[in-house]
Amino acid sequence: MTFKLIINGKTLKGETTTEAVDAATAEKVLKQYANDNGIDGEWTYDDATKTFTVTE
Score class of each variant (00 low, 15 high):
Thr11Asp: 10
Thr51Trp: 02
Lys50Pro: 00
Tyr45Leu: 02
Leu30Trp: 04
Ala26Glu: 00
Gly41Lys: 01
Thr16Glu: 05
Gly41His: 01
Ala20Phe: 04
Ala34Arg: 01
Gly14Ala: 13
Thr17Met: 10
Lys50Asn: 08
Asp47Met: 09
Thr51Ile: 06
Met1Cys: 10
Ile6Leu: 07
Lys13Ser: 10
Gly38Ser: 07
Val54Gly: 00
Thr53Cys: 06
Leu5Lys: 00
Thr44Gly: 06
Thr25Tyr: 07
Thr51Pro: 00
Thr25Leu: 09
Thr17Asn: 07
Ala26Asn: 00
Tyr45Asn: 00
Leu12Gln: 10
Gly41Thr: 01
Asp40Tyr: 15
Ala34Met: 06
Thr51Lys: 03
Tyr33Gln: 03
Thr11Met: 10
Ala48Ile: 12
Val54Glu: 00
Thr53Pro: 00
Thr25Ala: 13
Ala23Trp: 13
Thr55Ile: 08
Ile6Cys: 06
Gly14Phe: 15
Thr51Met: 04
Ala26Trp: 02
Val21Gln: 11
Phe52Val: 00
Gly38Asp: 08
Leu5Val: 04
Gln32Lys: 13
Glu19Arg: 13
Asn37Ile: 15
Leu5His: 00
Tyr33Trp: 15
Asn8Trp: 12
Thr18Arg: 06
Asn8Cys: 12
Gly41Arg: 01
Asp22Val: 03
Lys13Met: 11
Lys50Asp: 03
Ala24His: 10
Ala24Pro: 09
Val21Asp: 10
Ile39Asn: 02
Gly38Leu: 06
Lys31Ser: 04
Thr25His: 13
Thr51Asn: 03
Glu42Trp: 13
Thr55Lys: 06
Lys31Ile: 06
Met1Tyr: 15
Asn8Gly: 05
Ala26Pro: 00
Gln32Trp: 06
Leu5Gln: 01
Ala20Met: 03
Asn8Ala: 09
Asp36Cys: 07
Ile39Leu: 06
Glu27Ala: 11
Val21Gly: 09
Glu19Ile: 15
Thr49His: 06
Lys28Arg: 13
Glu27Leu: 15
Lys4Cys: 06
Phe52Lys: 00
Gly9Asp: 03
Asp47Cys: 06
Thr49Tyr: 05
Glu42Ala: 12
Ala48Phe: 11
Asn35Trp: 15
Val21Pro: 14
Ile7Asp: 01
Tyr45Lys: 01
Tyr33Met: 05
Val21Asn: 12
Thr16Asp: 03
Ile7Val: 08
Glu15Thr: 13
Thr17Trp: 14
Asp36Pro: 01
Ala20Gln: 10
Leu30Pro: 00
Gly14Trp: 15
Ile6Glu: 04
Ile6His: 05
Lys13Arg: 13
Thr17Phe: 14
Gln32Glu: 09
Thr2Ser: 08
Glu27Thr: 04
Ala34His: 01
Ala24Asp: 10
Gln32Pro: 02
Ala48Asp: 12
Met1His: 13
Lys13Leu: 07
Thr53Trp: 07
Glu27Asn: 05
Gly14Thr: 14
Val21Tyr: 12
Gly38Gln: 07
Thr11Gly: 09
Thr18Ile: 15
Glu15Cys: 13
Ile7Gly: 02
Met1Phe: 15
Val29Lys: 10
Ala23Gln: 12
Ala34Cys: 13
Ile39Met: 05
Ala48Tyr: 10
Met1Pro: 09
Asp47Leu: 07
Thr17Lys: 09
Phe3Pro: 00
Phe3Arg: 01
Thr17Asp: 05
Trp43Tyr: 03
Asp46Glu: 08
Gly41Asn: 01
Gly9Phe: 14
Gln32Thr: 08
Glu19Thr: 14
Lys50Trp: 07
Thr55Asn: 09
Thr17Ser: 15
Tyr33Ala: 03
Leu5Asp: 01
Gly41Tyr: 02
Thr25Cys: 07
Val54Gln: 01
Thr55Gln: 07
Leu5Ser: 01
Gly38His: 10
Thr25Phe: 08
Glu19Ala: 08
Thr44Val: 09
Lys13His: 11
Gly9Ile: 14
Lys50Tyr: 09
Ala23Val: 13
Tyr45Gln: 01
Thr18Val: 15
Asp40Thr: 14
Thr49Pro: 02
Glu56Leu: 13
Asp47Ala: 14
Leu12Met: 14
Thr16Ser: 06
Asp46Arg: 03
Ala24Phe: 12
Trp43Ala: 00
Gly14Arg: 13
Val29Gly: 04
Ile7Ser: 03
Val21Glu: 11
Lys4Met: 08
Ile6Gln: 05
Gln32Tyr: 05
Leu12Thr: 10
Gly14Gln: 12
Leu12His: 13
Thr44Lys: 10
Tyr45Phe: 07
Gly14Ser: 13
Lys50Gln: 11
Thr44Ile: 09
Gly14Glu: 11
Lys50Arg: 15
Thr53Glu: 05
Thr53Leu: 05
Val29Trp: 12
Thr51Ser: 05
Thr16Asn: 05
Gly9Thr: 15
Ala26Leu: 02
Thr44Pro: 00
Gly14Ile: 15
Thr18Ser: 04
Gly14Tyr: 15
Met1Thr: 14
Val29Asp: 06
Glu42Met: 11
Glu19Pro: 05
Gly9Arg: 05
Trp43Lys: 00
Lys50Leu: 12
Thr25Ser: 12
Thr55Val: 08
Gly38Glu: 06
Lys4Ile: 12
Ala26His: 00
Asp46Trp: 04
Thr18Lys: 04
Ile7Cys: 05
Ala23Cys: 11
Phe3Gln: 00
Ala24Asn: 09
Asn37Ser: 08
Thr53Asn: 04
Leu5Phe: 04
Thr51Leu: 04
Thr49Arg: 07
Glu27Gln: 11
Val54Pro: 00
Trp43Arg: 00
Thr51Gln: 04
Glu56Thr: 09
Gly41Phe: 03
Thr53His: 06
Trp43His: 00
Asp22Cys: 05
Asp46Asn: 11
Glu15Met: 11
Phe52Arg: 00
Asp40Asn: 14
Ile39Asp: 01
Ala48Thr: 12
Ala26Asp: 00
Lys4Leu: 09
Leu5Ala: 02
Glu42Cys: 09
Lys13Thr: 10
Asn35Arg: 15
Thr11His: 13
Thr16Arg: 11
Asn35Tyr: 15
Asp36His: 08
Glu15Ala: 08
Leu12Arg: 08
Lys31Asn: 04
Ala23Asp: 04
Asp40Phe: 15
Asn37Arg: 15
Thr11Lys: 11
Leu30Ser: 01
Phe3Glu: 00
Gln32Ala: 14
